[in-house]
Amino acid sequence: MFNDTVLKEIEGIKAKYPDRRSALLPSLYIAQREFGWLSQEAMTCVARSLNLPEAVVRGTASFYSMYKHRPAGRHVIQLCTNISCMILGAERLVDFLETRYGVPANGTSGDGRFSLVIMECIGACGTAPAMLVNTDFYDNLSEKRIEEILENYK
């Protein structure tokens, strides 16, 4: 089960809404932060802290693409390949990440360093191509720039 600090945090979130189920999405983010991904145990914790059936928790979580349903690498790269990024070379960058770092699209590198998630538009179309590494934002990407950026994520 979550520790007391986390439970208190979830209580604070519940207080912002007229019903407890509304705290589900934020609580799933908290579980993901605590466990690294939404394991069975993580989702059980969420279900208990909100007094919701586990099936409801799992079903809802499965709908949203930013919840991780398997363990991820130490750093998660979220690269956009939608139209504005695509026409400016994002697909080439997907290939580059695989050859240079061994991280396949929507998979994790063998050394566990990176996971790569293909994103649907991260709202950086004016400075495309763009990505998030964990929660840090980078744009105007090229192969060279990606190499420089990822140096900081060991």
Partner: peptide
């Protein structure tokens, strides 16, 4: 939100805010 384009539609957004 948690990564779902459809939640920009207002009734889907409401469903989502309700968990």
């Amino acid at each position: 939100g948690a990564g779902a384009y459809i939640c920009g539609e207002e009734t889907a957004l409401i469903e989502s805010i309700e968990g």
